[in-house]
């Protein structure tokens, strides 16, 4: 399963909806994501890949979490950063 597929599965689970209805261009806020959904999703992702996502609720980094594709990009970056260490 690709990173994108795994991320979409996690987000579908968080949104309690069918994974097939989650697409890369899905706007998370429009789909019903609230602040705690973001934090829970970051937690799931970090757990699954054993990575650190650079996310702090005090910065305006909600923008980093606008679409599913944004989340996939963050995961890819974190995996790359982990490999570089």
């Amino acid at each position: 399963m690709s990173t994108a597929d795994q991320v979409m599965t996690i987000i579908a689970k968080q949104l309690k909806r069918d994974p097939s209805s989650v697409t890369l261009d899905l706007d998370l806020q429009e789909a019903g994501f609230e602040s705690l959904d973001v934090i829970e999703t970051v937690f799931e992702i970090e757990d699954q890949w054993d990575i650190d996502i650079n996310f702090n609720a005090n910065t305006a980094s909600m923008e980093q979490f606008r679409t599913v594709a944004d989340v996939v990009r963050l995961v890819d970056e974190a995996i790359a950063a982990k490999g570089a260490v």
Binding site: I39, F43, F55, N56, A57, N58
Partner: peptide, 20 residues
């Protein structure tokens, strides 16, 4: 820590360089 609201350096209320 899991809520991602703790400050890195210190508590800076109403300061633009706040971190939690």
């Amino acid at each position: 820590e899991a809520l991602r609201v703790l400050a890195r350096d210190t508590c800076r209320p109403f300061s633009s360089d706040r971190s939690g």
